[in-house]
Design a protein around this nucleic acid. Structure first.
Lengths: 205, 205
DNA sequence: CTCTCTGCATGATGACCATCATGCTGAATT
DNA sequence: AATTCAGCATGATGGTCATCATGCAGAGAG
């Protein structure tokens, strides 16, 4: 054989791309080095030429998966001058998004997994989440700072919850209904003027 | 040794209880038979006295975890005559719930995992979700049927999304903020009269 | 053209996994 | 009291896992 530097870069790229898709489709725990390397046409031994450990790959794959979300948002913005909340929702709360988790938003697919992960993994998602939140805030526009931040947080909660539930409901009429209902609640909230937010109470679930 | 029928029932109970906690804390994939049996004071071999397979246990543990949610809701209703949307939110979107995933709502903890599972597992969650949705609809009260169902779906989307995000944000000020923002959006939506809901559009994420 | 360096394949290592086979011991039954 | 039965422990099985050691062949440098 023999392998150029450029080929190595391509290999690494294909490994990350495949891993980013797999973790979104099947979860972080389900990612297997052997299976992954087979899927990109290499053998397991070559893995450690590219990554120090499985954890290092997971970090890179999560980063990539999260970046895909920003790329999709940027692509959707192209052409239209300004992004509106409605246009974001039309893309995000769509059947296409629900049915393609491997290419979709990593927050929706992996929030549960990341919630139980270590601080480093959580920080990686938080960093990208900040961008998502800022994009929503910008689309929502002006108004007092805190209220916009609250709207963004609530809207994103609803969006990722709705995608997760619509996937649980796959094959059921409610799978479509939950997307529409979430869309409606967020759009209504956008138009309404709102009061300051109190702190959450302490109680048992 | 020697073991009575009552002791067997207790063993089975402890296995399911421990498993229901573990899957909520660490995910379904992370559940290991050996570790689980050790944690309840038995050895791995005894597992198959109680369950046909790991999958059978997962089904039982998920069912139990989901029932815990209904039990918590029933306990919260005790004393007060009627459950309101606000009282549901006060319990659900609380720091206590966020900080105790092992004892909390299985939908919030496992929606992502279940979304990528088979039809049988998804159906188990859907069945319990129907109860949760009905409880929310009842608390919301009267009004035209479809609108109440949409409110329930959107509210639950927001609730499980907010818990998931607040766990990702653990240790960050946004962890509290997202709970409060979600609470606010749902309460505002409850009071507003609303229009019929259109179908979701088709588009890329 | 020669030499070094490296991307990759092959194979080994040891840990863990779910599952099954066997046997002991005391509960249940008569 | 004798006998059957069942819950559990021990240990084996075969598979998969992440990781490391070794060797080869071709790319890059001189």
């Amino acid at each position: 054989m023999g392998h150029s530097r450029a080929e190595k870069a391509q290999s690494r790229e294909r490994i990350i791309t495949a891993a980013a898709q797999t973790i979104r489709e099947r979860g972080i725990d389900a990612l297997s080095i052997g299976e992954l390397m087979r899927s990109v046409g290499l053998t397991h031994g070559a893995f450690y030429v590219h990554f120090e450990s499985r954890d290092a790959l997971v970090a890179a794959a999560l980063e990539r998966a999260l970046l895909d979300g920003e790329a999709a948002a940027a692509a959707a913005r192209r052409g239209v001058g300004k992004r509106t909340v409605k246009s974001i929702l039309n893309n995000y709360l769509s059947r296409a998004h629900r049915d393609a988790p491997g290419a979709g938003c990593a927050v929706a697919a992996l929030a549960g997994d990341v919630a139980r992960s270590g601080p480093a993994t959580r920080r990686a998602m938080i960093q990208k989440l900040d961008n998502y939140l800022a994009a929503m805030a910008e689309a929502h526009g002006g108004a007092p700072r805190d209220e916009v931040a609250d709207f963004s947080l609530a809207a994103w909660s609803t969006m990722i919850g709705a995608i997760a539930l619509s996937r649980v409901f796959a094959g059921d009429p409610r799978s479509d209904q939950v997307l529409a209902a979430a869309r409606k609640m967020i759009l209504d909230a956008e138009q309404r003027p709102s009061d300051p937010v109190p702190k959450p109470p302490a109680a048992t679930p």
